[in-house]
Nucleic acid binder design. Structure first.
Lengths: 108, 108
DNA sequence: CTGTCGTACTTCATCTGTCGTAGTAATTTT
DNA sequence: AAAATTACTACGACAGATGAAGTACGACAG
């Protein structure tokens, strides 16, 4: 199991990635992350929802409601331009991070 | 610059790696990390020293003093068997982490 | 012989993000 | 009708990173 301290800096990025394909909402994103990671990473509910608040506060995502849906009050999110820019930044940061950390890793 | 949240889970691992080559002390480790990462990562002093306390408390490193040294009170550390085991664990965890995170990263 | 720089730490207080616990409430499945 | 799943929200605790500040020794310049 992956320790959360490692992933810490990438929860937001994962969520943003999930929104690249179009709007979505908490539960769906959560399941998709789980599926995409092949069950290797499961984001905790509280982590997920607090990430939404943070991301929205930073202007990286925008929330809205769909009326006409059945009674489940879902909050949908879409990624913003700023969010996309931030995502891209994080992607290139990740490349550097990998390079750096790999220098401290002994194979086998 | 690499954000600290990403590295968070690997500061301890980096320190342990530095001790694989033999005993060392704070300032030296710090400089070596800096050098090995090609200036891409500089561990903050407070982070480094609080990591030492944690690592020692967990039995992953052991501290000692060399007498006969000039008046600079250096605290030396060496890695323990448990520390080595922990380091190896972290290394294989890192492989999984990379695989997982990479699924959420779009190239270019 | 004084001041500055580099070495080698320590203490303390703060912040951020994660996570456990718990609770609400609707819909779907059994 | 009960149980499970969906879809959240609130609250409090905790760990690790960090900024700011301070201590103290040695070397070296001016």
């Amino acid at each position: 199991m992956i320790s959360s301290d490692v992933i810490r800096g990438y929860n937001d990025t994962m969520i943003l990635y999930m929104l690249l394909g179009g709007e979505s909402y908490g539960y769906e994103i959560s399941k998709n992350i789980r599926r995409l990671s092949e069950e290797k990473y499961v984001m905790k509910e509280t982590t997920l929802y607090s990430a939404f608040t943070r991301l929205e506060k930073n202007g990286y995502i925008a929330s809205f409601h769909k009326d006409g849906e059945s009674g489940k009050r879902r909050t949908y999110y879409r990624i913003t331009e700023e969010g996309l820019a931030y995502y891209r930044e994080k992607c290139s940061e990740w490349q550097v991070t990998q390079e750096v950390v790999n220098k401290f890793i002994k194979e086998t």
